[in-house]
Amino acid sequence: MSRGMSPHEFQNYLGLLSRLLRLRSAQREAVEDELRAHLEDRFAALTSRGIEPDRAISLALAEFGDAAALAAEFSAVSRIRRRRWMMRLSIVSMAASVLVAAVVASLWPDSSGPLADGVARAQQAEQPAAAEMPEMVRTAKTDANAETRQKLEKLATADFIEYPLVDVLAHLTEVAGVQVYVDHRSLDEVGIQPDVPITMDLKDVPVEMLLRLILRQLDLTYMLDHGVVVVTTPEEVEQSLEIRVYRVDGLVEASGPQAALEAATESADPYFGRDMRPGHGGRPHGLDELISLITSTVVPESWEDVGGPATIKPFRDTLVVLQTQFGQHKVEKLLQHLREAVAKEK
């Protein structure tokens, strides 16, 4: 290990820097390793030119400057990373959820249809009203958001040349019949004026898509809150992760005598969920597969095991998911598509 060869001044500096970095521990170690290699290279080059070791150490360290300022720079980069992550949400997960539905549907044994059939069904599945969504444990808030989401599917035509943002938003939300709120404080923080000119020319596309494309031009996004479209920054949305509970019964229960036996054993004990039962083997059959399906297809880079902020945990017959609103919507859609595919099989 090169660690042992480092002058202890380098270690002190890197240790201080590492404590100041607002990054995960693996990322902090990577930064330390990278900078240590540089310091050692620089030290070797300087001493080989006949510079005294003490002087070489201070020269090498001086090139990195103040540890706090450097740590702040690295942390700022990680904010860019998170920001890009938010920007990619819309593209990646929308494509993924349709694709998964298509693949699942086409894999089902009595699915008459090849891929196209699956896609058609996936598109149909975009339509259901709030009351028809059995996946999510519902609340008044989620119902209102589901209703708005459906209204945003309405088709509209955008023909704006250098129109002020606020007017464009007012027009689109009026067409869809929903309310809009512009988060002026957040927009102000990123230096965007509410009357920034927008140009967009698209015919007969969902209002949701127009909204998304227009806001993306400005590095902005939107979220739904009690049915209201809130226009804000990706940072703001990212900070507002929300918890939702999804029912997964019917998707994870194993068929066959073994499952029935397990179910019977469980009902004998009302105090323990499946996860907590000793000797049960952990989880309902298929739950791990379902979690892995969700985390690999819905905004794959967002989950905690790959360094993102989102989490997914099983609890009895439910999945407890901490995700952005957009991610939650995609989880909901995926479960819905899966349920439809299962229903078709039966």
Partner: peptide, 17 residues
């Protein structure tokens, strides 16, 4: 390029793919 400038810059270029 000072090392204190170079590394954050490299990390940013990486974040920007």
């Amino acid at each position: 390029v000072q090392a204190g400038t170079l590394y954050p810059l490299l990390h940013r270029l990486e974040a920007e793919k």
